[in-house]
Design a protein around this nucleic acid. Structure first.
Lengths: 118, 118
DNA sequence: CGAGCATATTCCGATATCGGCATACGTCAA
DNA sequence: TTGACGTATGCCGATATCGGAATATGCTCG
């Protein structure tokens, strides 16, 4: 069934789902509690259909849950899917610290040269 | 100049750059040291042009550095750009733990019921 | 300089993305 | 039931993505 894909479907994994800035903003907003679509749209300055579409993606990768509350549909955060992202990036911690050390050493060198210079 | 964009350019931010699985694999490989393009391609089972293209993206967002070494171009990890990703995801730690707690509580409940049942 | 290896770029096709707009669906309340 | 509100879906245009294949560029050594 699969013809060649142009890019991993945004709907198929968390890394793709959070590649879109507005979706990250939605997730951040949801940390302070569940919300109906319209309110999210308003808070983020997007249209209602826009918000709905992003929420659909987030739901499909399991980052949000929804429940019906009267006429409204409340969306709620389910952050468990972000753990793999955190862990994956964390696997590089040693390396960005290393880079920092190098940078730090470099800055130290510059300072020293300057002081020795005058 | 900017006509409407279909998606944030993959080349413009780290979140998009790491949305592609093969690029994540490249980064992981580079943790064990710098490598020429061909070796990366071989190790990941991709074509040379394919590897080059992914490396270009990674370079443009600053996740890798390259240096010329004879005929080869060696690519090296610069993981500093992954720190924001780690931190962003880390901002949800409290929430996935919460979810875990809930799940845990639920499992406990099930156990208890079972024990009380017999 | 010219051969040859290493890498980058270009062009292509198929597909996916995102935003906007119109509209369908769903639920409640009178 | 009908109306009104809240939300989802469908379609469109512009653009970007990815992989493959061919080809261009770069660098080194004889």
């Amino acid at each position: 069934m699969l013809e060649r894909m142009a890019r991993a479907a945004t709907t198929s994994d968390v890394f793709n789902a959070i590649a879109e800035p507005q979706r990250r903003e939605i997730l951040v907003l949801l940390r302070s509690g569940e919300r109906p679509v319209t309110e999210l749209a308003r808070e983020l300055g997007m249209t209602q259909p826009g918000a709905s579409k992003h929420l659909r993606v987030l739901r499909e990768v399991g980052l949000v849950r929804d429940r019906q509350a009267g006429r409204q549909r409340l969306y709620d955060l389910d952050a468990r899917g972000l753990r793999p992202v955190h862990e994956w990036a964390g696997g590089f911690e040693r390396f960005w610290n290393e880079s920092f050390d190098r940078l730090d050493a470099y800055v130290q060198d510059l300072k020293q040269e300057k002081e020795e210079g005058r």
